[in-house]
């Protein structure tokens, strides 16, 4: 089951990633940061880039998903969500097998991935 979800999910995510990028780079989806201004930002540290361009961190991108540049995040987030989806999918199977050690390991892994994805972990300055 893990392999099936991973295969389908990675193909779908790559398709979305490619499609949204073509819309963005092809000028069909207007970006929040004009593409010709990107060279002013891509040499900056990420925190400085967010500050200067007045962009949100964490999940703040969701409300900007209508812009071409943030539309690309959909495919990226799909790719980054696949592992946790697969682990959630096999969890009932582990429960049925009463595989206690692996139940705990999978639970801990899901917790780590959720914590990483939550945006609660912030880099201090």
């Amino acid at each position: 089951m893990y392999a099936v979800i991973l295969r389908g999910g990675s193909r779908l995510s790559m398709g979305v990633l490619l499609l949204t990028f073509l819309l963005y780079a092809g000028g069909l989806a207007s970006p929040l940061i004009p593409i010709d201004r990107l060279p002013q930002y891509w040499g900056l540290k990420a925190a400085e880039y967010l500050r200067r361009a007045e962009l949100p961190s964490g999940w703040g991108w969701v409300r900007l998903v209508g812009f071409g540049d943030y539309l690309n995040y959909v495919g990226i987030v799909m790719l980054a969500s696949l592992s946790v989806l697969c682990l959630l999918a096999i969890f009932p199977l582990l429960l049925r097998r009463k595989d206690t050690a692996f139940i705990l390991i999978v639970l801990a892994e899901i917790a780590v991935l959720f914590l990483a994805a939550s945006g609660l972990l912030v880099v201090g300055h």
Binding site: W42, A46, L55, L113
Partner: peptide, 17 residues
């Protein structure tokens, strides 16, 4: 995946790159 989420949440994922 876990590290990528941190970079994504901290704005260090530029689609053009």
């Amino acid at each position: 995946t876990s590290a990528a989420w941190v970079y994504l949440n901290q704005g260090a994922m530029l689609p053009m790159v």
